[in-house]
Amino acid sequence: MRNAFAKEVTRLASADERVVLLSGDIGNNLFEGVKKVGSRHFLNCGIAEANMIGVAAGMAMSGLRPIVYTIAPFTTTRCFEQIRVDLCYHEAPVIIVGTGAGLSYAELGPTHHSLEDLAILRTLPNMTVFAPCDIGEMVGCMRAALAHDGPSYIRIGKKGEPDIHPGEVDLVIGKAIEVQEGHDVALLVSGTIMPVALAVSAILKEQGLSVAVTSFPTVKPLDTDYLEQTASGFRLLVTIEEHGRIGGLGGAVSEWRAGIRNAPPVLLCGTRDEFLHVIGDQDYARSLYMLSADKIAATILEKLG
């Protein structure tokens, strides 16, 4: 997804002279294409993320459309107050891109995990929060964010994420995308953990259940129309995300459900409230957090009784 992101930024910069990519001194050689479009489109801001957000705000307030890029925790939790004041309070049209969604950088340890970003950014007025599941959604998010007159955050994966959607995705801010129809259990999914959700669906189908899978590339604003019209007919709603169970998609859906009569129960599948103290690859880390397909499926079947 990183390479596809770099390619998309190159395309956007070629088409729009306002686009400037600000990098927090990462992505060596990744952005050669953008640089070739013109030096005005790229700025390495060094390892200084708080300043980078402020610089992006000043650029956006002067008519440019900055895209800020570094590893997710460093462009979210590290510089949260700059995002809150410089971007959100000023309604500055800046796209923040965090690479290494969730446990993409599992091997690098908790400093590089990103399991709180959706939650904290969702609390900010004026902020739009995206978690695309594949390259098609990521490209759709980039284009929607660029056309949107306010700040946004896009958490992207690392590499090797399979395509979920065939061809281009017509992404509309605040609209969910149905991946698979069903009527017993609805899997509501944000981000690059989507292949796991599809594997969960396959296990549940073997048990005779009809399973819907819906992608929520926009975590904020949440597609409450979809939830109200479609999801209320299910026996169980399950949110699946590579993020803490506090405040992400699961939190957002729970907030929605709190105001709805007769809504089905919601099961939140996300990481539990603790840091990992062992290293391993992404699938191993997911498994430790009970986010592997077999463990999620078992949890769902237990809930259904």
Partner: peptide
């Protein structure tokens, strides 16, 4: 030109404006 009050924000924003 900028909402300030939380200290340390003005110079980064001003630099962004200058580079713009």
């Amino acid at each position: 030109e900028a909402a300030t009050g939380s200290l340390g924000h003005g110079l980064p924003i001003g630099l962004g404006m200058a580079l713009a």
